[in-house]
Design a protein around this nucleic acid. Structure first.
Length: 679
DNA sequence: GGACAGCTAAACAGCG
DNA sequence: TCGCTGTTTAGCTGTC
């Protein structure tokens, strides 16, 4: 009761915001903000971005390593007498494990795996500081390039930093501190060796003309940023990293009292080499525009000063006034080796971002060209991702789940379904905002699964006041199937509608009535009374039975859908290319490690099964033997007699697909916006 | 043109 | 009494 009232209040609030918007979409860009907290989205995006960047760095390292190994083979052979150089397969294995490490071990393991030639098991299973023995072995082998050494150095710094921070916790004080001190000493010795080796390596390379360091060279790769640094610089950097937190421990209250490093969080460590902001002391550099775009300059503003905090990488000192900050900036961040190194890192970061931006711009242009959108505002209402074809399968967006080339457009519900190769959907403001009743929706018309569409266009549907091109029954089913226990109360279904679709944040009475009507009308929805009360579940057999006559009657359509779905031998080349570019084996790990691809594969099977093999399969998760409904006391069966053949109906893989971790991650459906990042 | 499916609206009953 | 839930009916439209 109370919950529903709250929902109504939310809906009404949204309605009040949306109510003024005309159907012509004139003010569509001023749509209300998504109910999803931006913090969560940002964190997830940040994690993806970090993983993506790490992957790119790993690839660069491997690539350059291959090149350098081929070029400096002679040098290697002189220094590396009697020791085997790593096999090419090792690199491949390393990279493969690194990719897996993105899921399991995280970035730390990944960097270790890439930068070190340590056994994979060690790199993957012990994401910790390398032991002196391992370091010695690495040094003796001298198989590392300067770049690798640099990455190793940085990684070690970050790891030491993390360990120091971790040991700052009360439980590990005395003994752990001793351990850290010993490790610091040991590592500093190793560091000196690393520096010597690196210096020698650099000299050799320079002597052979294989490496030239331009004095004013910018845009160095991350792993070569500090190639030109003298050992003193490295030592200085290391001291900065290791001592900063010791100081901070004694001076915790002076600067910022809450800078603890959560090892479990993907937040970047405080290591200046790894931080993402830098500039020069008071003098804006060429990349000022990047920072100035984020912070509007004002008479007493500074790109490195915001909200009373110094934004210099790793600083975050708090100041009462701007003058204090300037004084601090000139004193603490003067032109020295450390600042220079940090600036180099920031250059690389900016370059990476610009590269990424360029790629995304190019992709956007291709998308708009493909869609024939004549718009001067690229940041308009987000459009459904599945409106584009292979353009979105670009390798430049591995952080996004692979878009499905489903030939459906949510903007034109009654438009004929045509393959992408034959259609160029023209998206206009009017078509984006379908006004009329749903009538026949794609999911009903062609047994299309709505989960990929909703998944791909989640942001779109959440923000744009566009009616989803699916029937109420499909949406209800989707809501139920996305729930952890495959059952929802009516109120939870309401919440799912309002949460997932901006369209359903208004006219609540209408669509809620329709939802109730559909729940009662369709026998695919089964009402179950459990301890909590009445919940609704989906009878997949009944749901699949509803439109068996469609699609089979049109061989051409069948072929088109089959082709566009990219199933089996007709898998689209673009899709395959994308999978290959992202190092994602479609038929191997897709069903194992990648929830998104797992859902994709299941969704494809579901589509093909639902559309093509109707009545040809057997059993499903909704079969009586595998009821997903715990603690049921009563099941209301609708009056339509159940055909005995029904149990030999189509195999429903939807439920199976939704058992993937991808769905199990999203549990709370009770307006808990903080945990409902569903798809 | 009929059958069918889907949407909207409404009435009604039961329940807390 | 009110609001929610659930059921049912009717009218309309679109698709096949």
């Amino acid at each position: 009761m109370m919950q529903e009232s709250g929902t109504e209040a939310t809906s009404d609030g949204q309605a009040s915001q949306n109510g003024g918007t005309s159907m012509e979409g004139g003010s569509r860009e001023g749509r209300p903000k998504s109910a999803t907290p931006s913090v969560e989205v940002t964190a997830a995006d940040l994690l993806h971005f970090q993983q993506h960047q790490a992957l790119q760095v790993a690839r660069q390292i491997l690539l350059q390593q291959q090149q350098q190994q081929s070029q400096s083979h002679q040098l290697q052979s002189q220094q590396n007498t009697g020791r085997k150089s790593p096999k090419p397969n090792d690199k491949q294995q390393s990279l493969q494990c690194c990719i897996s490490g993105l899921v399991g071990g995280g970035l730390t393991s990944m960097f270790l795996c890439v930068s070190l030639k340590v056994p994979v098991s060690v790199a993957m299973m012990t994401p910790q500081v390398i032991t002196p023995q391992q370091m010695q072995q690495i040094l003796q082998q001298q198989v590392l390039s300067p770049q690798q050494l640099q990455v190793l150095l940085q990684q070690q710094q970050a790891l030491m930093l993390q360990q120091v921070m971790y040991n700052r916790q009360p439980h590990h004080e005395s003994f752990q501190e001793q351990q850290v001190s010993a490790q610091q000493l040991a590592f500093q010795q190793q560091l000196l060796q690393v520096q010597q080796v690196q210096q020698q390596h650099l000299l050799n390379l320079q002597r052979q003309g294989l490496l030239t360091i331009q004095p004013g060279q910018t845009g160095l790769p991350l792993h070569s940023l500090t190639q030109g640094m003298i050992p003193a610089e490295l030592q200085q950097l290391w001291k900065e990293v290791t001592n900063a937190h010791v100081k901070e421990e004694h001076n915790n209250s002076s600067n910022n009292g809450h800078r603890g490093l959560d090892l479990s969080s993907p937040a970047p460590p405080k290591n200046p080499l790894l931080n993402q902001h830098a500039s020069t002391n008071g003098q804006y550099m060429s990349h000022k525009r990047e920072t100035s775009t984020l912070e509007e300059p004002s008479p007493h503003s500074h790109p490195l000063y915001g909200h009373g905090v110094c934004k210099w990488p790793g600083c975050e000192a708090v100041f009462e006034d701007f003058q204090s900050f300037l004084k601090h900036l000139n004193n603490e961040h003067a032109l020295d080796d450390r600042s220079t190194a940090q600036c180099r890192v920031q250059m690389q970061v900016v370059q990476q971002l610009e590269l990424q931006l360029a790629k995304d711009k190019e992709r956007l242009q291709a998308m708009m060209t493909h869609l024939h959108v004549k718009s001067t505002e690229p940041k308009a209402t987000p459009q459904p991702l599945n409106l584009v074809s292979s353009v979105t399968l670009s390798k430049s967006a591995p952080e996004a789940s692979p878009p499905l080339s489903l030939p459906q457009t949510p903007t034109t519900p009654t438009a004929p379904l045509t393959p992408l190769s034959q259609t160029h959907s023209v998206i206009t403001a009017n078509s984006l905002h379908s006004v009329g009743p749903m009538r026949r929706r794609y999911s009903e018309k062609y047994n299309m699964p709505i989960s990929p569409d909703i998944s791909q266009n989640k942001e779109f549907y959440m923000n744009a006041d566009v009616r989803p091109p699916f029937t109420y029954a499909s949406l209800i089913r989707q809501a139920i199937l996305e729930s952890p226990e495959k059952q929802l109360t009516l109120n939870e279904i309401y919440n799912w509608f309002t949460r997932m679709f901006a369209y359903f944040r208004r006219n609540a009475a209408t669509w809620k009535n329709a939802v109730r009507h559909n729940l009662s009308l369709h026998k695919c929805f089964v009402r179950v009374e459990n301890v909590k009360g009445a919940v609704w579940t989906v009878d997949e057999i009944e749901f699949q039975k509803r439109r068996p006559q469609k699609i089979s009657g049109s061989p051409a359509l069948v072929k088109n859908i089959q082709t566009s779905l990219g199933y089996g031998p007709t898998l689209s080349a673009a899709f395959q290319a994308s999978m290959a570019e992202n190092n994602i084996p479609l038929y191997t790990t897709a069903s194992i490690g990648s929830p998104t691809l797992n859902s994709l594969a299941n969704a494809i099977r579901e589509e093909m099964n639902g559309a093509m093999d109707h009545g040809n399969s057997n059993g499903s998760d909704s079969s009586p033997g595998r009821s997903p409904l715990p603690a049921m006391h009563h099941i209301s069966v609708k009056e339509e007699p159940l055909d005995p053949e029904d149990h030999e109906g189509p195999l429903s893989l939807v439920t199976t697909a939704n058992h993937s971790p991808d769905f199990d991650h999203h549990r709370d459906y009770d307006d808990d916006q903080g945990h409902d990042d569903m798809l």
